[in-house]
């Protein structure tokens, strides 16, 4: 057997093994999360290595405890879900409202400082968020925005804007200018062109950006921790879950139920829009 043949055969088998390995390391943690969330804690302590739930053991008591309101002896995740949903939706909508005209301008219009805008975004994006967090903490404390969900929305918009504008800009650039020109000849103004021609064409890319923004806002932790920690009724799911872990009496199975509640919406959204999202994020990257 020559070297080429040997390598081809070896790599074929190696490839299958590696793919299986990847499936294990990416899926097992999530499966484990799900399994633990429906097992009673005593059983977990007894047999910690089990990746399966005997039907008799199955319980949803953990979810009930997590979701019940605090007054009823639960952990109040219902409120957290509402807060997270509100913040993420508002941040997504507002980011799009700001990013779409911005991206259009950067991709289509010549104006003073157009080139610098992209560089500025990159520079800003690379600064540690903890650096930004301190003055925001100070300002928000002074103007009374700390502890309000609106302050959080504002921060999330600023965090997602650079990537949103970048993704949208790349997409706008692929739309042929002639389409917009013919609309202009038909008498459409600048805003009319954006609304009637560019926006409908960019719909898939806008969906991808919306998905990305929602995920970032839903998953975010640091700013929620800094701004909302002393306002339990405003906690997001991430924050509520992390503080739940500090409670001594809270069993790990309940913690896992909370994790499932936090993860599930994102995973569902992600599988619904996976193709859109990956293409949106990496478009332009293949140019090197």
């Amino acid at each position: 057997m020559d070297r080429d043949r040997f390598e081809t055969v070896t790599l074929r088998w190696l490839r299958r093994a590696v793919i299986a390995g990847f499936l294990v390391i990416t899926l097992v943690p999530f499966w484990y999360m799900l399994v633990l969330s429906v097992r009673p804690i005593e059983q977990v302590l007894l047999r910690p290595g089990s990746l399966w739930v005997p039907l008799g053991e199955l319980t949803v008591g953990t979810y009930a405890e997590v979701l019940r309101a605090v007054d009823d002896g639960g952990q109040g995740f219902g409120t957290f879900i509402r807060n997270s949903g509100l913040v993420a939706l508002a941040a997504t909508a507002l980011t799009l409202v700001v990013a779409i005209p911005g991206a259009y301008a950067v991709s289509r219009l010549r104006f003073f400082g157009r080139r610098q805008v992209s560089a500025l975004f990159l520079a800003v994006y690379l600064f540690p968020s903890i650096v930004i967090a301190i003055p925001l903490f100070v300002v928000f404390t002074r103007v009374g925005l700390r502890g309000s969900l609106f302050g959080l929305v504002l921060v999330y918009i600023s965090q997602t804007l650079p990537v949103s504008v970048y993704m949208l800009k790349n997409y706008f650039e692929t739309i042929p200018i002639s389409l917009e020109e013919s609309a202009a000849i038909d008498g459409a103004g600048r805003l009319g062109i954006i609304r009637r021609v560019s926006l409908p064409l960019a719909a898939p890319s806008i969906m991808a950006v919306a998905l990305y923004d929602f995920m970032i806002a839903w998953n975010e932790y640091l700013f929620a921790l800094l701004f909302l920690v002393d306002k339990p009724d405003r906690w997001t799911v991430s924050l509520g879950l992390s503080l739940l872990a500090d409670g001594v009496e809270v069993p790990k199975t309940v913690l896992m139920a909370g994790s499932v509640i936090l993860t599930l919406p994102i995973v569902l959204l992600f599988f619904a829009g996976e193709r859109l999202l990956t293409e949106g994020l990496t478009s332009g990257a293949e140019k090197g």
């Binding site: 992390s242 872990a245 896992m256 936090l262």
Partner: peptide
């Protein structure tokens, strides 16, 4: 979400 995977 980072909180969930960190706990797992």
């Amino acid at each position: 979400p980072v909180v969930a995977v960190a706990f797992v």
